[in-house]
Amino acid sequence: MSFEVDIHRRVGERTIAARFEAGEGITALFGPSGIGKTSILTMIAGLLRPDGGRIAVNGQTLFDDEAGIDLPPEKRRIGYVFQDARLFPHKRVRANLLYGYDLAPPEARWMSMDEATSFLGIAPLLDRWPRSLSGGEARRVAIGRALLSGPRFLLMDEPLSSLDSARRDEIMTVIERIRDEVKLPILYVSHDRDEIDRLANTVITLGT
């Protein structure tokens, strides 16, 4: 098993809770907007603390309130592709890509800068500023930045939202190649059924 997740957290009046296990390939978290899919990802990433429960990846416990384990985000080795690319505006594309790469211990890296740029087709963008990129370009750079940090698994939050259909196809192809060639487990959040049917190996439907 890649992911074992059993967490809950109160947000205002509601409780966001999720319990699932997920294996190889792409596991989709599917459900309507506002149900707390992004909150679940941020809790797995360590940016939001669950009220209780347990999160483990490849047998390593990242969070367990009973055992008092709560690894900080920088120790979890997760690649998080945010819904809004979230590139650093004061760094050029190259520096954005190298941010996590430089911080990863050399033995944790499994992709080089050259591999990432040719894999994603972003070599011509290296000297650009994030603000000058189109939505699709920014998305690809964000994926590259996450892959270069040497993650053991990937969290993707609506990576196709607000892209036109040509760009969507382009990014979907990239995601399929990560699934099939890199064989990195991906937890994928979406509210789009078609997208999930094409990409996901396992679908977890979140209900109200």
């Binding site: 990433a45 940016l47 900080p72 920088e74 998080y80 979230r86 941010y99 930045r145 996450a146």
Partner: peptide, 16 residues
């Protein structure tokens, strides 16, 4: 602050 969160997931300590 979300940029700070992004930096953390990429392996940066709070000080970095």
């Amino acid at each position: 602050r979300r940029l700070e969160g992004a930096a953390r997931t990429l392996g940066a300590s709070p000080l970095r």
